[in-house]
Design a protein around this nucleic acid. Structure first.
Lengths: 160, 160
DNA sequence: TCATTAGATCGTAATGATTACGATTTACCG
DNA sequence: CGGTAAATCGTAATCATTACGATCTAATGA
């Protein structure tokens, strides 16, 4: 449900403004890549975006798609779905639990909450398919990374 | 928090039993790989498991690790963390929403729920780091895949 | 408008994760 | 103790992603 024309337009506006603000150039490719994502119902991967946009911009390079997606994510215009990690992670803990994912280092920690184990899932979900289980994913910055960032901040302000 | 000795042992027991039940052979490598995962606090990726178990089983092959992890997941003994997809997916929908992930085809659908937007996150989370936002991830089988499986079932029972 | 230039793009090569495959080994069952 | 199907090993192949040098272009201002 990425939404209506109006929603897409609103996002496109935000896109242009954020590009300006971040000192990024507004290129044809960027606009097309963002639009493709904003108009898509699915949550496409880089290759899918590349295939789709290539039809309109035949000279498009894969590198541009990957780079642009990273840039947009860094600017907070789009989000990665699921953990940030480069490789697939596994978990032998089959007890009910939830995940805290550090968006900086990719580390995943388990946490427990009885309240979260009994989530009030909306009925509308049933139209999507058969539910197996639900899990809460909290994103943020882990203590270690937060500390590291703080140090960098301090160093920077000392330099200037 | 993968847990105490007792928990690990309990999981190891379940592991052996499930191997038997599923007609899988109980190999040294499998035991070691499962144990490594069950004893780990983190949520290691295949390479990390390979490195760790290699120290104890020097002849271990990467293929075995990848294959074993897939098998264990198929048997329901371990879980992948995050979406099932092979590649990273992106989402331009920055409005508050949640995800339904089909564990069969990897498709991700958005859904909305005000109740889920206001989750009672436990205070213990603060010790892990700074929270950015929380999102519910529901796993299951999408309607299309469920239908496909049903057909296969029917065909099988007709054959026998 | 046109020149300048930092930042973007292109095409392709390199890297890294994952999977496939043939040869060999091993757990399990009688 | 065999026999056999399944599992493993080592390596090669594939697929996703990133890096890099050459080229191009959006933004800026004379």
């Amino acid at each position: 449900m990425t939404g209506s024309k109006a929603q897409i337009d609103r996002r496109a506006q935000g896109f242009i403004q954020t590009c300006r603000r971040g000192g990024m150039k507004m290129t044809h490719q960027r606009m097309e890549i963002f639009h493709e994502l904003a108009a898509s119902e699915a949550h496409p991967d880089a290759e899918t975006v590349f295939q789709a946009v290539s039809k309109r911009v035949p000279s498009l390079s894969r590198d541009t798609v990957y780079r642009t997606l990273s840039t947009l994510e860094a600017e907070g215009l789009i989000r990665k779905v699921g953990p940030v990690s480069e490789s697939v992670r596994y978990d032998a803990n089959m007890d009910r639990h939830h995940h805290f994912v550090c968006t900086t280092c990719g580390q995943v920690s388990d946490f427990y909450s009885e309240a979260l184990d009994r989530l009030p899932l909306p009925e509308s979900l049933e139209s999507l398919g058969v539910i197996d289980f639900a899990q809460v994913q909290v994103r943020g910055t882990c203590s270690a990374c937060a500390l590291r960032e703080e140090k960098t901040q301090t160093r920077r302000s000392e330099e200037s």
